[in-house]
Design a protein around this nucleic acid. Sequence first.
RNA 1: CGGGGCGUAGCGCAGCCUGGUAGCGCACCUGGUUCGGGACCAGGGAGUCGGAGGUUCAAAUCCUCUCGCCCCGACCA
Length: 584
Amino acid sequence: MLQRFTQALIPTVKETPAEATNASHILLLRGGYVRQVGAGIYNFLPLGLRVLRKIENVVRQEMDRAGAQEVLMPALLPGEYFKETQRWDLYGDVLFRIRDRKGGDYHLGPTHEEIVTDMVRREVRSYRQLPLNLYQIQTKFRDEPRPRGGVMRGREFTMKDAYSFDVDELGAQRSYENMREAYKRIFERLGLTFRIVQADSGAIGGKTSAEFQVLADSGEDAIVACDECDYAANVEAAEIGALPKGPEFPKEEVREVHTPNVGSIADVAKFLKVNAKRFLKSLLYVAPASDAHPHGEVVMACVRGDHEVNEIKLANALGAREVHLATEADVERATGAKVGFAGPVGFKGRVLVDPAGAELTNAVTGANKTDHHLMGVNLSRGDYAADVKDIRSAAEGDPCPRCGAHGGGGHFKAYKGIEGGHIFILGTHYSAKMRATFLAQDGSERPMIMGCYGIGISRLVASAVEQHHDQDGIRWPLAIAPYHVHLCTLGTEPEVMNAAKALADALVERGIDVLWDDRDERPGVKFKDADLIGLPWRVTIGAKTIAKEQCELKARSNRDPKGHELVTLANAPERIAAALGMAD
RNA sequence: CGGGGCGUAGCGCAGCCUGGUAGCGCACCUGGUUCGGGACCAGGGAGUCGGAGGUUCAAAUCCUCUCGCCCCGACCA
């Protein structure tokens, strides 16, 4: 289609809005794509909506191709469904709750497992009706503790969510793989650089899951990927290969050293002139109350000084639902020393240490005595007792658990990612609770095996910009650009305007979407706006070019301000179509 | 929820400390000169100073409460 700039609402702005800090947010605001309405709530202006729709359509095409069927479930939900699975309570403050005039509980849908499950249990009786994969593109509502980054993390956002129903595990696995392939195609078509990453399956019954992480330095998720094989994982979930054995040192005697007022690893390392890698960092965590520990259990988690404790892994290792870092008072009570001087030697309580920490020879640890540390601590000699468990986050340089195990030499590289999609097998978590069952071939009644698959559509708008921009503005991938061609006319002389109109019509006829900047503005203004808006190709027609029956063609990706190609007006439609890969 | 910051014209900000009746840049409107990388000159319109209460002869400025937004940490597509 052809859109004239003078008839469009494309409010570009020169100045950087104060509330935006990351590139995508700044550029989407400046380019006139979105505007804020409230915290985590946004208007999509015409350009923004076109991008959103383009992404939706790619997703829709690939979902349909994969055999999923589109449905539309309500955003406004009666509370009874979430109550049926206890999520009414479990979801907590994230749920936007509403009361109707009669005082009944309602909420806005943050996700739709219960609703599809209900839909399916009402209609499906027999294994003959399975498998099924239903999806929708819907507005979701989550009262996020902290919305941020514009449409990157909103409280209202557009999501594609799909749900599969199978008769058995094998079928569920097939559905999952099918979605995995569909997602790969989607992310590739959108022009995004991404990694499929092993993720923490979370609290809810998922055993198999993967995140589609769009790589971007501004991403909130830390991921690691092997430099040799295709293993990649969220650092919170990454398994860690065996570290190579270091050289053997003669074991020293444990000795206490005076370390006045230096509690942090960095400070003690400097004070003692010992590398942080030789430290055993000891942190105290509290696991929630259980039968064995009615007041909660204080445990010590030890990792090497340069490593980080991973609370999810720690909770898993303890069999606890969650753990929290102990308060200062807890630490002092448990160790008898101020914070910064905790250590496993002589600690009365459970101690967990990760393999890299366990291997340390002559480690430095806190002495459980204020202003004192111990040196020469060795687990192998029994200086302290501990369970060796993987309780740390993976980091750059760690050996890969996959190819490392087979003699390969792969190591992790660290990346930042934006979670653009998440797929997982749910099993019977919802179907069992909600009695979504079918009659199998042998006549038995069984719960359906479910999977669920999400893509953050509106988040991908921002993700794409994070990945595709430069100092001047956005550089949309062709597949999701709001228009293909930015037609700039310089001057408003009839010859120029007529030539532009003729060219635009010829392009539209070929299915090319054209934004024609027909404003009476100076060239500089138009070029700046064109760069900011970021359409893949810019075509310029002015009095100078028209005198030669020509126009200029320039790719947005071309950084050279003069890096354009002169094309005769007669050949322009074909040449442009070819540039877009849309030639006949 | 903890920590920090901000609310003054459509946007970006100054003024607040030390009360005296609101200013700058951009944008907008009019006229003129300009016209290939965010022009220039002249003139002009536009603000319940987030809201409520208080102190005072006088409050954008001081005090109390309140609402909103942003940023940094624990959650998620």
